[in-house]
Design a protein around this nucleic acid. Structure first.
Lengths: 334, 334
DNA sequence: TGAATATTTGTAATCGTTTTCATTTAGTTA
DNA sequence: TAACTAAATGAAAACGATTACAAATATTCA
């Protein structure tokens, strides 16, 4: 069934049928005739042919490091919330944390696969910038800031700054930090700088030394907490770059019979479900991942519809969620 | 840049260029000439035009109820693992737990959008069956059994049967059950029947009465555990249909100063990360969600490549992961 | 009324490939 | 060498829509 046969059945030209579907000029009679034939045959225009002709794929591509991660799952859910209503479809490319694949998919998508790209990136190399510069389709970067590009990201710096400040206000004087690699701009660099500046601004710049770098896992949090505590004993608080690291750290501290928050405070980052079921529950920072996904794709759709956007960058807020792991009891030794 | 211009530059016909890309008959000289031009221009054939001509979209569609769910995230990760190597791309449709949308996307995908479909479904209505029957593209159903269709699913029944048996072996005599709606075949019906048959086969059929139906959340687990315990006091074990429910139940029991596993055992289902960080850690069942995704898409690719498959249904195994919440101490009151 | 504008219509070109077909050239076999 | 078969080639016809163009009809405005 193609447009020609429908046209023949309805006694009109194929152009008329095309107009019927695209709200072109068409008389009521013909409209009705076509409607009837379409109904009877169940005809649907070929997406392929439309795409070839119009150069619009009606698809958005999202490139992400790992789909089975809670935060990324939420972002994608947000993207889909908006996309569902828009007539666009979502094409997913999972790089499995391989930056090379990121480049590969970028150019694959760019060629003509999709109308726009959302990149949930972690690391920007020189080659990334080069590929990004050569892109033909519009792109929005989600979760990272990259000047000169449309991007939606979270205020990691201030979140960590204020989280650190909170612990200082709770009475901590020797704060340790469990971070991640600086290659990850948001989670590594931004959060670390937030910590550093907060301790410095409050007169505890010595804390800048009590730092160990971990991986993104609970186990690594456990190991590195051990390393941290063995090197710098008598810490009265540990600030962690992620919830997973914080949970690993809490496990180590509990094994060492350190009371949380009695003797030492611990904070995470990301508001994962995990922190809600630990004992004690974990003080953390909530980012609106789903919202950021919605905003990013909203931005992209605006670009695609030809609107000129007032803002190129959206920095989202955060919310410090204080739970038991930082709630100091009366007469606490901290 | 289209195939014609490349042909002109290389001094050959467009058919030759097409053959160059599709391993058709072509001489070494021309091959080299074309290679050079392609290299210089960075030409890539238009996917749209290819699709229109060949009727192959090189895309797989997956329809799922909710992307930001751990188990579904893992399945999709598995799907992507395999797809990444295969030259196929993944189109995602999120129904947001709306079965109507499932039907909608099924027919949208069916028309000509994708070469094959993976359906991660929960509920099969009569209309589902009708739409499935009318499908033109091959489909594999993931996570549920539906006779007559290719499907990959987990052995929920035996998993729950043996989990229940384990608790009986641990000495439980009054087991309660926190389940979910029977509309969900795998999580609702199969697991519930596993529980019922296990208690009956072991002479405790009275336990079939100690049942309350919950939602899929921690909070609901808390509420329904309360309801269960208030109705049937003196339970010495609670079997839960999901980890979330189990964690909610544990929270309630701890509030009531019930010792787990000292006075009452609790088990979950699904091996979510959550159960690993609770106190006590949660005994659960591990399903290989990622593996099931890989198998499902592998099946689909086999179908697409024209292989005749020996098996239409794959029932995957499971693994009972015993943690603290069911580990009875010596001299335990249970 | 006449002119200008808005609506309606079909024909045919176009998008960028693949593939059939017919033809030529090269290679093999008897 | 003759008679095949296999390999190489290009012209042209699809694939199924949209849309520029030209032409006809209807409507509006002064």
């Amino acid at each position: 069934m193609n447009i020609g046969e429908i046209a023949k059945l309805a006694g009109v030209s194929s152009a008329a049928v095309s107009r019927y579907f695209n709200n072109g000029y068409i008389s009521e009679e013909k409209k009705e005739a076509i409607r009837k034939v379409v109904e009877e045959t169940g005809y649907r225009p070929s997406v392929q042919a439309q795409t070839l002709r119009t150069k619009k794929t009606k698809m958005i591509g999202v490139i992400l490091p790992k789909i089975d991660s809670a935060s990324i799952g939420c972002m994608v859910a947000g993207i889909l919330n908006v996309l569902n209503e828009s007539g666009y479809q979502l094409l997913i490319a999972d790089t499995q944390n391989n930056p090379e694949k990121e480049l590969e998919y970028l150019s694959a998508f760019d060629e003509k696969q999709v109308d726009g790209i959302i990149l949930i990136a972690t690391i920007f190399t020189a080659r990334h910038r080069k590929v990004l510069k050569g892109l033909n389709v519009p792109i929005v970067i989600l979760g990272q800031e990259l000047s000169g590009y449309y991007c939606v990201y979270h205020d990691d710096y201030h979140a960590m700054y204020n989280m650190t400040k909170l612990l200082l206000e709770r009475g901590c004087r020797r704060l340790g930090y469990l971070g991640v690699t600086a290659k990850d701009k948001a989670v590594g660099t931004e959060r670390y700088e937030g910590f550093c500046n907060a301790v410095t601004d409050n007169g505890f710049s010595n804390c800048r030394n009590y730092v160990v770098i971990a991986d993104f896992t609970i186990d690594s949090g456990y190991e590195k907490a051990k390393e941290l505590m063995e090197k710098y004993s008598e810490l009265d608080g540990i600030v962690c770059a992620t919830d997973e690291i914080a949970i690993g750290a809490m496990r180590y501290l509990k094994e060492q019979k350190k009371e949380i928050p009695g003797q030492i405070l611990v904070t995470g980052h990301g508001d994962s479900d995990l922190g809600r079921v630990t004992t004690p529950t974990l003080t953390t920072v909530h980012y609106s991942y789903e919202k950021s996904g919605e905003l990013a794709v909203g931005m992209l759709l605006d670009i695609l519809s030809g609107k000129t956007l007032a803002v190129k960058e959206m920095k989202l807020g955060y919310e410090i969620v204080e739970k038991e792991s930082s709630r100091v009891q009366k007469n606490s030794p901290v």
